[in-house]
Nucleic acid binder design. Structure first.
Lengths: 157, 157
DNA sequence: AGATATAATGCAAAAAATTATTATTTAAGA
DNA sequence: TCTTAAATAATAATTTTTTGCATTATATCT
């Protein structure tokens, strides 16, 4: 049996999936799929960083200057995406609110307070434990986030 | 052997300790201990809620109307307290940044996305696991926070 | 206690972030 | 292609946060 080789690598497939989910979501709510919305989703996806509305807007202006996307559209789209659980917002300490795609695999964050670098990780045991706790308290989990702050390997030197 | 009865209940003792820590901190940095700063710390302590700068300011105006504390002072003091790790700021979803006293016992948060209510909890197992993970990644933990989102017992009905 | 130096405050103004308005453009369906 | 309903950019309006400065209050020193 031979392997089938596709044109898509893992990341492409994921984005295609994401985009398709987004389109379905829009259609369900009789909203329209616009270039701006696509560009926002794409930029959010391409960036591994956690973005503020402003930095996201900046990135878009840089990469798609012909679009002249307004900051208000970024805010509106981010709100829409957050409402529909496609992105999550986080706030780490002093810095403002940042957004990241929630459609990526779930993960927690380890944040270096020296260099600001963010490492993502997942731990099965913690995930399970969270479920039990919520269950005990009669709580129906929809999502969760966890951050560990400290000094990373690099900065210790 | 008889028990010694003090004038202070647990909460009073804790606040006294907190206040004293604050005073030491100020002295160390040649900053001054003012009534406003005390009132802010106290209000933060008394409130079990997580407060925005604005709601904190509102509470203070209500409880100490003669002080006429300015919102700018609240912001400045909050920043000072956060810098010195006496309070932590959190941002849950759509709502803005909220502050809580970090000197309380450490705890995680379970947030109801329907009514906005926040339940605090601690789980030994999760705490331990976090330490191990950080250790594995050569990360030196200074702090962490965790939030679980979902629908609380009350709101399910 | 009183005098002095310096930090903190309130107020107001400025800056930054967010939201609303509106005329125009664009997408989706007939 | 035509229609209509939603989305956009641009801008204005709000709201939130920060800053500057004259005045007040605190801590220290005598």
């Amino acid at each position: 049996m031979s392997n089938i080789i596709t044109n898509f690598n893992d990341k492409t497939v994921k984005y295609t999936q994401l985009l398709s989910d987004f389109k379905i979501l829009l259609k369900k709510n009789s909203l329209k799929f616009t270039i701006q919305r696509e560009v926002i989703l794409e930029t959010l996806y391409k960036s591994d960083k956690h973005l503020t509305p402003e930095s996201l807007h900046h990135l878009i202006k840089e990469n798609f200057p012909e679009l002249k996307t307004g900051i208000a559209t970024v805010y509106r789209t981010l709100a829409l995406l957050e409402d529909s659980d496609m992105v999550t917002s986080l706030s780490f300490g002093a810095q403002g609110k940042k957004y990241e795609l929630g459609a990526k695999e779930h993960h927690d964050h380890m944040i270096c307070t020296t260099c600001g670098d963010i490492t993502e990780f997942v731990d099965e045991e913690i995930e399970n434990r969270q479920d039990s706790i919520a269950h005990e308290l009669g709580f129906e989990i929809s999502d969760h986030s966890m951050q560990i702050y400290g000094i990373c390997k690099n900065c210790k030197n």
